[in-house]
Design a protein around this nucleic acid. Structure first.
Length: 506
RNA sequence: GGUGGGUUCGUAUAACGGCUAGUACUCAAGAUUUUCAUUCUUGCAAUAGGAGUUCGAUUCUCCUACCCACUACCA
């Protein structure tokens, strides 16, 4: 049986967004599940839309997620340009493969599957405008190509002359007339399309001597021995062309699987960069600063754990068929299967994303979380013993979604409150409570004794404790008094209490 | 406009023609707790509409509606 080989083939026209990461993830999971190879290829055949830094961003994102390719990267983590044992199909950047595509395009011309077209951009523009004016849509296909300037309509000598003289011609695919293309998609099943609704796509451009996506994609997938093409649903409309291209070349084609789109949380439409900015969640795996200086937030910088991010992405459009929701990458590999991938677009839910991170935070060891929390403390000008921070972490980890929440939850263990929440003070800072609290605090040496003291006197525990809590934390919520006092000590607790007495008016 | 794809609680999804349509997130209520949070319990909430096939349809077929994608010498 043929070895499973899949590829992730992004275009470096900007930062990879979470939908792209999911496509990469599904490719990776499928490859690993089948014991095959996951290949990274950069499709940079559009010389006009190249964005500096985008390729590096893609690689760094995959690295952060732990879904690095088996093939396509050199040992230094850079995209491979030279062949090696691990990179037998290098280069993996299409701009570096530039020289190989022309002969394939011409092979199609020779076989009668493609032709040379000499229409200028301006001519096509006006043809489109004319059709639109007549209430029709201009399609470059069997119906219109006979009246356009190409090697199918022109004298061979004239064609030869133009090919030599001009440098703006293209090679177009000769779409068959009125033929039903029958296709099978692993996710969507059987699909039929009539070629009369399709157009003669440009395959190769003389102007920059570069192929378009369609040609480069098919040629490279063939050359790289790709067995399964797993890509976004937006490619489904070009599947007939790709089928026909494989047929024209006489190549065995890979299996196809078109993934459902990731949609925006509210309203309709696919997830876009603006949604995240507007609704307060990241759309990108990593922070991205555009060449113009525009900043987009990233899951990494927002405090998400990479395994949580991968987990939540995996569950968007796929399910294991069981009720398990938390999966490590290895477990995902084991459980993954393309026939459990859904057909309909998945709306991204930021609340569920946070829930995943919360679950992962709880699974982290106290030691690891402490190591992550120490720098946060330093930022707040606090120096604390790792041992006591570890103890604090174990107390607060269940209350947090992100490590950065730790400070908001436990800051009062390090600093005395500067102000008091008015509403809470009004509720609990009453003379009789304050008197009881003061006595309990002064007369006992530990939180445990204090509790006994209050209990034995049959004082209202809630009122007294909240009075003390208000003095210690500035509000009526937070950790247990015993825990707080263990960390700040009795002296500090008394000092805070006296300070509250000075500052708060009863 | 044309072509293709899609449609189960608000969201993600389960139910390979057959129990009362299940689970998770969110939300609400209750229990626990010295407060908050956690935890636990309970609750709210869905098969887009209409035909057909069938003993029986969320599931198969058709029609309608709505949504999405594509419709470049972009990917």
């Amino acid at each position: 049986m043929k070895r499973t080989r899949v590829r992730f083939a992004p275009s470096p026209t900007g930062p990879l967004h979470m939908g792209g990461v999911r496509t990469a993830l599904y490719n990776y999971l499928f490859a690993k599940k089948m014991g095959g190879d996951f290949i990274l290829r950069i499709e940079d055949t559009d010389s006009h839309r190249f964005v500096p830094g985008a390729e590096e961003y893609i690689i760094e994102s995959l690295r952060w997620c732990g879904i690095l390719p088996d093939e396509g990267l050199d040992a230094d983590g850079k995209l491979a340009s030279k062949r090696s044992v691990h990179n037998p199909h290098a280069p993996y950047r299409q701009s570096e493969r530039k020289g190989i595509y022309r002969k394939y395009a011409e092979q199609l011309v020779d076989g009668g599957f493609a032709y040379y077209a000499f229409d200028t951009a301006a001519e096509l523009e006006s043809a489109r405008a004319a059709a639109e004016g007549a209430g029709e849509t201009f399609i470059y296909n069997s119906a219109s190509r006979s009246s356009l300037r190409n090697s199918l309509t022109m004298d061979p000598a004239e064609v030869k002359r133009l090919l030599e003289e001009r440098d703006d011609w293209t090679i177009r695919f000769r779409m068959p007339e009125n033929e039903v293309v029958e296709m099978d998609d692993i996710i969507r099943g059987h699909i039929e399309v009539n070629t009369s609704t399709l157009d003669d796509k440009v395959l190769w451009k003389r102007a920059d001597e570069l192929p378009t996506y369609h040609l480069a994609n098919i040629v490279d997938d063939h050359l790289m021995e790709i067995s399964h093409v797993i890509r976004g649903e937006e490619w489904l409309p070009s599947l007939p062309l790709h089928f026909l291209l494989y047929r024209a070349f006489g190549w065995e084609r890979p299996e196809f699987a078109h993934l459902p789109l990731l949609l925006k949380p509210v309203g309709n439409g696919k997830l876009s960069k603006r949604d995240g900015d507007k609704m307060g969640f990241p759309v990108f795996p990593l922070r991205w600063v555009s060449p113009a200086g525009e900043v987009s937030r990233g899951y990494r910088e927002d405090g998400y754990f990479p395994d949580a991010f991968v987990n939540l992405l995996a569950m968007l459009g796929w399910n294991p068929g069981t009720e398990q929701e938390i999966f490590s990458l290895e477990e995902l590999v084991q459980a993954f299967s393309l026939d459990k991938v859904g057909k309909s677009g998945a709306k991204f839910n930021p609340d569920k994303a946070k829930w995943f991170n919360k679950e992962y935070l709880r699974m982290r060891s106290d030691e690891e979380l402490t190591a992550l929390f120490m720098p946060v403390l330093a930022e707040h000008g606090v120096s604390a013993e790792p041992a006591s921070v570890l103890e604090i972490v174990s107390l607060i980890k269940e209350r947090a979604t992100f490590v950065r929440d730790f400070w908001d939850i436990a800051w009062y263990l390090f600093n005395a409150p500067e102000e008091y929440v008015e509403k809470d003070a009004a509720k609990f800072w009453k003379s009789e409570n304050v008197a009881m609290a003061r006595e309990a605090l002064m007369e006992t040496g530990s939180a445990h004794d204090m509790e006994e003291y209050i209990r034995s006197r049959e004082w209202p525990m809630g009122k007294v404790m909240n009075c003390i809590r208000l003095a210690l934390t500035g509000s009526s919520n937070g950790l247990g008094i015993a825990d707080i006092m263990r960390f700040i000590g009795r002296d500090e607790a008394l000092a805070r209490f006296h300070r509250a007495e000075e500052r708060l008016i009863i």
